[in-house]
Design a protein around this nucleic acid. Structure first.
Lengths: 208, 208, 208, 208
DNA sequence: TCGTAAACGAGACGGTACGTCCTGTCTTAAC
DNA sequence: GTTAAGACAGGACGTACCGTCTCGTTTACGA
């Protein structure tokens, strides 16, 4: 729960718009949102490689300068969008049932990728996240870290309940739960609840 | 075994260079290799997004036309390179030891990503593989499929030896073994032998 | 002499700064001068084509709005400046010596162009004066007209004194006296007293 | 006559297109002409200050790069155009009649300014010719110099015929003949044959 | 051995997008 | 209501690449 607030704070956006009235005309929130919306639409429609700020500006009804005034680059703009979209799919509720919670860890990831704009957007940004620290580092420090924390909590509760081995490495557990989802995102395979169940069950009982 | 030949055939290259002598000056293999080499270097140096055929042509000492005569697009060129680079890291030898072979499945993937140009190249192409069927479909049909086949063989041998449960789903097993590697490639974490061991051991004995 | 007052009134400036106390904060004369000064400096430094109101505002320490509130356009601003700078070089004193006065007509023009900011400023505005009635018409109606009037007076005195032919066309005389100066300004050649003498002597005695 | 060739060579254009086939696709003359035509039209329609290479490119049906490949700047492009347009109005034929030839010197200048695209183009470029050596120096070295040479020849013939004083300074004569024309171009007044006659007659007989 | 035809390098070409600069208008808070 | 500050939509800048094209030259083969 507290973690949700944490996640929500990912929505980043214009950092702390509160108080401190700088001189001159203040930046418009409406414009800010119009740009992010146009960006999201265009990434979904055409992919990140074909995202052009000229088109974003046109669709948002905004001058290019207005975009560059707020974000240093296409990547920075995409990052803000990505963080905002990721937030809603990170939290795992404490249900008292370890298998259920582990399944939620996988399902959350699947749902984010298949049922929201987060899917197309991160698909389009995978290379940049992997390649470009300017985009990857903040993403890892927020979204990935939040997911690791959520799953660590699930593991901890599972151990407490006596459902899981005491020596489970939470990082490796995260990778075993979520890694397969991203594997299928890139390398093919259905992303559905059956897959989530299958991953969790295989993982719980082991291959041996 | 047979799969290695299979994998080797991935080297693709100019499809069927044999026979059918067309009239006129034949295409030069030297030029072909120079282009692929320049492409590899530039992807590694600058990433796929900053790969420009104009630069490839300049570095390879080649006219742009010569590149377009052979590949329809930047993606097609990158794909050929990718398939050639992937091949050497797919085979898993039958050692008689199931845990060893499973560890090899993970280590092979790690080695390919960290010790060869395949790493930077696929990192640069992840988004396109996920997004762009023109690149993703052939990649999945060859490299990913080859890897699934190799791991399926390992699983089959493990079951035969009585080391693994009879109901193991080979696809899910592939994803549980290799997914964590790609997770770390994108989302951070060491890619080394200790990690391979950790993944395999957790997976063999299960979380419960 | 009376013409000098006439000329002085060219200084134009904020039209009728007198009386009529409008409500609200009154406009600042200091600001007005700061803008004109900055404009003059920037035209001299970089030419009219590279004169940007943004820079004028910055150098004058003034908001852009403040400039637009006073002048409708860059041209209008430049025009006011031009008229102010032109005024001091128009008057020709009655010395009793016709040749001297004709020489003064040429020398005045030369002095204005070479020894004051009027030179760089009009050089920068020649095309606009020739091309753009918004700038050219007021310039012709004030500065050029004042010069024609001054020279007409010189001619009249010369005729009265018996120094000049009675049928001299004063407009053509103005053009023959001052035209060569502007010809050299644009098309090369020294602008000095020797040239002034040369023009006047050739003109007095004729080519034949 | 020989001077006509001289003048014709002003047409400048792509300098000496002869021989020496550089590698690669050769530049297209058709494109070259299309650009100059579009430039001429746009300068006439809107003036030099409002000449935008983006519009030239659009009207000529040409990429911007193609323009920048040939001319370093808007000014360089305008210069080539200007030199080509100036050439036809420079020659003064030997008619045996000095007054006629002097009148031709003035009339030629008037005709060039009023009956050809040279008028609007030079009007638009006056400031740059006066201000910017990159444009002014070549203009002075070709067009202005050619005009000085033509008029010097007229003067020489006039002296030979006994029509003109032996001590006439040809440069000052040029300025007295053509200066008034440019004065009126900028500062108002009719540009017609009557004016030409008036200038020549006043000049021949002198003011005194 | 010579002609033919495609490959080759070079680079021009019409375009699109870049990121920057400036325009003229606007919106705010301070005076 | 004026002021400084600066956001805003828009448009042009000059550059970089795109993918296509047109040159002159090179290279292998088959007649």
């Amino acid at each position: 729960m507290g973690d949700f607030d944490n996640a929500t704070s990912l929505q980043a956006g214009p950092p702390t718009r509160l108080a401190v009235p700088r001189p001159g005309r203040p930046r418009s929130d409406k414009v800010h949102r119009a740009i992010l919306d146009a960006t999201r639409e265009l990434i979904v429609e055409r992919g990140f490689a074909n995202l052009h700020l000229e088109h974003v500006a046109a669709r948002a009804g905004v001058g290019k300068t207005t975009i560059y005034r707020r974000w240093a680059s296409k990547e920075a703009l995409a990052l803000e969008l990505l963080l905002a979209l990721a937030a809603p799919h990170l939290v795992i509720d404490d249900t008292g049932n370890t298998r259920e919670e582990l399944t939620a860890a996988v399902s959350n990831a699947i749902r984010g990728l298949t049922r929201s704009a987060f899917g197309p957007v991160i698909r389009a940004l995978l290379s940049n996240i992997a390649d470009n620290p300017a985009l990857g580092d903040p993403f890892r420090a927020t979204v990935v870290q939040a997911r690791r924390v959520e799953i660590a909590a699930v593991i901890a509760r599972g151990i407490e309940r006596g459902d899981l081995r005491r020596d489970v490495n939470t990082d490796v557990a995260t990778e075993l739960l979520v890694g397969p989802v991203y594997f299928r995102l890139m390398f093919g395979g259905e992303l559905n609840d059956e897959f989530a169940t299958s991953v969790v069950d295989t993982l719980l009982q082991g291959l041996a």
